[in-house]
Simulated assay, not measured.
Amino acid sequence: MGAHDVAVLGVGMHPWGKWGRNFVEYGVAAARDALRDAGIDWSQVQFVSGADTMRNGYPGYVSGATFAQALGWNGARVASSYAACASGVTAIEAARTRILAGLCDVALVVGADTTPKGFLAPNAGDRPTDPDWLRFRLIGATNPTYFALAARRRMDLYGATSTDFAKVKVKNATNGLANPNARYKKAVTVEDILASPVVADPLHLLEICATSDGGAALVLTSMEYAKKLGKAPVRVAAVSTVTPSYPNTIIDLPDIATDSSAVVAPPDFRFKASIAHAAYEEAGVGPEDLSLAEVYDLSTALELDWYEDIGICGAGDAEKLLNDGATHIGGRIPVNPSGGLACFGEAVPAQAIAQVCEITWQLRGQATGRQVEGATTGITANQGLFGHGSSVLLTT
Score class of each variant (00 low, 15 high):
residue 270 R to H: 13
residue 207 E to Q: 15
residue 283 A to N: 13
residue 182 A to P: 13
residue 308 E to Q: 15
residue 49 S to P: 13
residue 100 L to C: 13
residue 34 A to I: 02
residue 228 K to R: 15
residue 158 Y to L: 07
residue 273 A to K: 01
residue 333 I to R: 01
residue 31 A to M: 09
residue 264 V to D: 00
residue 125 G to V: 08
residue 199 V to R: 01
residue 4 H to E: 13
residue 317 D to I: 02
residue 394 L to R: 00
residue 323 N to R: 15
residue 32 R to D: 02
residue 186 K to G: 04
residue 325 G to K: 08
residue 185 K to C: 07
residue 15 P to T: 00
residue 307 Y to V: 05
residue 355 Q to S: 11
residue 104 C to K: 05
residue 350 A to I: 04
residue 364 R to H: 03
residue 50 G to H: 00
residue 316 G to Y: 06
residue 323 N to K: 14
residue 257 A to D: 15
residue 32 R to C: 03
residue 218 L to W: 02
residue 121 A to Q: 11
residue 157 L to T: 08
residue 309 D to C: 13
residue 73 W to E: 04
residue 346 E to Y: 06
residue 97 T to F: 05
residue 306 W to E: 01
residue 229 L to K: 09
residue 210 A to Q: 01
residue 263 V to T: 14
residue 268 D to G: 05
residue 222 S to R: 00
residue 177 L to W: 07
residue 299 S to W: 04
residue 381 A to P: 12
residue 192 D to C: 09
residue 355 Q to L: 07
residue 317 D to W: 08
residue 39 G to Y: 02
residue 68 A to N: 13
residue 257 A to Q: 14
residue 133 W to E: 10
residue 140 G to H: 11
residue 288 E to R: 14
residue 340 G to A: 08
residue 175 N to A: 12
residue 152 R to N: 09
residue 156 D to E: 11
residue 213 D to P: 12
residue 63 S to L: 04
residue 294 E to V: 10
residue 226 A to E: 00
residue 333 I to E: 02
residue 7 A to M: 06
residue 106 V to H: 01
residue 133 W to G: 15
residue 31 A to K: 01
residue 329 I to E: 00
residue 364 R to E: 09
residue 40 I to H: 00
residue 191 E to I: 03
residue 378 G to D: 00
residue 165 F to H: 06
residue 52 D to Y: 00
residue 308 E to D: 14
residue 377 T to A: 13
residue 359 I to G: 12
residue 305 D to K: 06
residue 116 P to H: 03
residue 370 R to C: 05
residue 121 A to C: 07
residue 262 A to K: 15
residue 304 L to N: 13
residue 56 N to S: 13
residue 199 V to N: 08
residue 218 L to V: 08
residue 289 D to C: 10
